[in-house]
């Protein structure tokens, strides 16, 4: 504290804490200056980026290339060196189809069923997730009684492990589960929800929204709170209706957060696996079999595993994800440019 008082001498706690930092900086100062002389300013940028790039390279790029290499090999052996090069055979097997809209005409029918299921899941779940998260964020942004409590309530499922989420909902939805118990109490006949293709699919959509919406609500809530209140006050003074204020003020200013949410929800939806695997195991039949489960079962859980086919499917899934993300970013940039021109 003494050091904070002007005119006083001696070391305060803050100063003492800074001593090791200053010592370290002193030590690295000379080598960094030397490096800057040798590499130049642009070289220094590359130097500071290197640790991050190294981690990215080892944990993202390298596995990607290894995965790609696997997709070009055959046999059930695990090690790449024990596998035989088959070129694009695994991809050809995945695309061996008379009619892509009818999985039964494909050599790998379960792959195309998983693709179709994932497509429907993404369309329905992403739309609902964004709507539900946005509505929840709008409600939680209002002056509510016990607002902090409600925010915690909506965020709580995010803290649960996906396996726990799957088990909780399985106990609710199974034949002798809580839902049927409640229905029976009201005089309704119990129903086997998870044996019904449509209900099982709806359950996977609903459960995944319940489990993750808290996170996206939080992002949107942060965006809503960053919108200056005086904009709404000015609109109100001008007699703007609430719906118009929502479309003309809230939505445009929330767009950056919304874009982040859309990209994250989309990626997460395509990757859906754990809670569904526990809840339905992909059933009934293959009605809730999604791409990630197909890849997992083909590469790891099936009797006589086929890592090459699983790798090829995962590469295709990665390509779709990259295309979708780029498309969204492109659309967002073009709308930003249009907005700037106006």
């Amino acid at each position: 504290m003494k050091a904070d008082v002007p005119g006083k001498t001696g070391l305060g706690i803050g100063e003492v804490a800074l001593v090791p930092v200053r010592l370290a900086m002193g030590l690295i100062d000379a080598p960094l200056r030397w490096l800057q002389r040798v590499a130049g300013i642009s070289g220094m940028a590359a130097f500071f980026l290197m640790p991050n790039m190294l981690i990215f390279g080892i944990f993202i790029l390298l596995p990607f290339f290894i995965n790609f290499a696997y997709s070009m090999t055959g046999s059930t052996a695990l090690f790449l060196s024990d596998r035989t090069f088959v070129g694009s055979e695994q991809y050809a097997r995945l695309f061996d189809c008379r009619n892509y809209l009818d999985p039964n005409t494909c050599a790998e029918d379960t792959f195309w069923t998983a693709v179709a299921n994932t497509g429907w899941f993404v369309i329905i779940q992403v739309t609902l997730m964004i709507v539900v998260s946005l509505v929840t964020a709008l409600i939680l942004n209002r002056e509510l009684a016990a607002r902090s409590f409600w925010r915690a309530v909506f965020f709580f499922p995010v803290l649960l492990s996906p396996v726990v989420v799957g088990l909780i909902w399985k106990w609710i939805l199974q034949r002798q589960g809580l839902l049927n118990f409640s229905l029976y109490g009201f005089g309704f006949e119990p129903y086997t929800w998870l044996n019904d293709r449509n209900w099982a699919f709806a359950a996977t959509v609903g459960v995944s929204i319940w489990a993750h919406m808290g996170f996206y609500t939080l992002i949107l809530l942060a965006g809503l709170q960053a919108i200056p209140k005086d904009l709404y006050e000015a609109a109100e003074m001008d007699g703007t209706r609430p719906a118009r204020a929502f479309w003309r003020i809230t939505m445009p200013l929330l767009a950056p957060n919304l874009l982040v949410v859309v990209v994250l929800v989309l990626i997460k939806a395509v990757q859906i696996f754990d809670e569904v695997y526990v809840l339905t195991g992909g059933g009934p039949g293959t009605s809730t079999l999604y791409l990630t489960q197909y890849i997992y079962e083909t590469g790891f859980a099936a009797q006589l595993r086929n890592p090459g086919l699983a790798a090829a499917a995962s590469i295709l899934m990665g390509v779709v994800l990259v295309v979708l993300t780029l498309l969204q970013l492109g659309l967002s940039r073009s709308s930003e440019k249009k907005g700037a021109r106006k």
Binding site: Q174, N195, G283, P284, L289, E297, A302, Q303
Partner: peptide, 22 residues
């Protein structure tokens, strides 16, 4: 029982013991 055979997919193992025990 449909619960055991229909409510799962792929080669997922499901035992029917709980129904018998209950």
């Amino acid at each position: 029982s449909k619960d055991v055979w229909v409510s799962a997919g792929g080669s997922t193992y499901r035992a029917g013991i709980e129904d018998f025990v209950n």
